[in-house]
Design a protein around this nucleic acid. Structure first.
Length: 227
DNA sequence: AACACGGGGTT
DNA sequence: AACCCAGTGTT
C-alpha cells in the first residue's frame, strides 16, 4: 500500500481542483448526467482519443436517442454507425447492454458496481466512470491518464506499480462528495499537462508535490514513497 | 500476467 | 515505424 499523509493528500486535492476550475475542457458528455449518454461516451472512449469520439458521440445520440431506440437496432446497423472507431465488439455490447437494461433493470442503467460489472463491455474503469459521472457516487476511476499521473506524482517515473496499488491510491485521494470533479480533473491533467510524451511540468499545479518533477528539473532524485 | 482487439493521430 | 489513446475479455 502507498501511504499518503493527510497534509499531502489535501494539498493534492486542492491544487488539482483549483487547476480544473480554470483549465477544464468543455466536452459534450460533461454537459449531461443522463446515465445512457454517459455510458455511450465511456464505451466510445475506451482506448480511443477524445477528439475522435466527440463527433461520433453526437451522431450516435441523434440516431439512438434512448436505450429503447438502441435496443431495437440490428448488429449490422450499429456496427456501421460505430465505424471507424474500432474495437468493433463495443457497439454490439453497448446494444446488448441496452437490451439487458430493458429486460433486467426496468429500462435503466444499473447503479451498483456489481450490476455494472456483470454487463459485457463494462469493466472496472467504466463502472467507476458511470457511478461517479452519472450517479454522483464517490467512486474512483483508473484509466491511462490517472494511472500515469498517480505513478509520476507518488511513485516516480520508473515505478511499475500493480493496478491494485493505483486503485487503492485513487480511492484514498478521493475527496468526499467531489468524485465527479476530482476524477474528471485527474483525467484532464493527464490528457493535457501530464502527457505520456513531453509532459508540461511548467504548467502543472502538482509539480511541487511530484516525486518525478525534481528529476525533470535536473535535481537529485528524491526518496521513493513508502510502501 | 500476458495477449488480442481497430483505427487514426503524433512523434 | 513506433508509440499512444478516458479498457475489456480471454487465456
Amino acid at each position: 500500500m502507498v501511504r499518503v499523509p493527510a497534509r499531502r493528500r489535501r494539498a493534492f486535492q486542492r491544487r488539482l481542483l483549483a487547476w480544473y476550475r480554470r483549465s477544464r475542457r468543455d466536452l459534450p458528455w460533461r454537459r449531461t448526467r443522463n446515465p445512457y449518454h454517459v455510458l455511450v461516451s465511456e464505451i466510445m472512449l475506451q482506448q480511443t482519443q477524445v477528439a475522435r469520439v466527440v463527433p461520433k458521440y453526437r451522431e450516435w445520440l441523434t440516431r439512438y436517442p434512448s436505450i429503447e431506440a438502441l435496443a431495437r437496432a440490428g448488429a449490422r446497423e450499429v456496427r456501421e454507425a460505430w465505424y471507424p472507431l474500432g474495437y468493433n465488439a463495443r457497439p454490439l455490447r453497448l446494444r446488448d447492454i441496452a437490451r439487458a437494461a430493458l429486460r433486467r433493470h426496468r429500462g435503466r442503467i444499473p447503479q451498483t458496481r456489481e450490476e455494472l460489472l456483470a454487463l459485457k463491455g463494462i469493466g472496472p474503469y467504466t463502472a467507476g466512470a458511470v457511478l461517479s459521472f452519472a450517479f454522483g457516487r464517490d467512486e474512483p476511476v483508473l484509466d491511462t491518464n490517472v494511472r500515469r499521473v498517480l505513478r509520476r506524482v507518488f511513485l516516480g517515473e520508473a515505478a511499475r506499480p500493480a493496478d491494485r496499488a493505483l486503485w487503492d491510491l485513487a480511492a484514498a485521494l478521493l475527496p468526499r462528495g467531489r468524485a465527479y470533479d476530482f476524477n474528471q480533473a485527474l483525467m484532464d491533467l493527464g490528457a493535457t499537462v501530464c502527457t505520456a510524451r513531453r509532459p508540461g511540468c511548467r504548467a502543472c499545479p502538482l509539480a511541487r508535490l511530484c516525486v518525478s518533477y525534481p528529476l525533470a528539473a535536473g535535481a537529485a532524485p528524491q526518496n521513493p514513497v513508502t510502501w
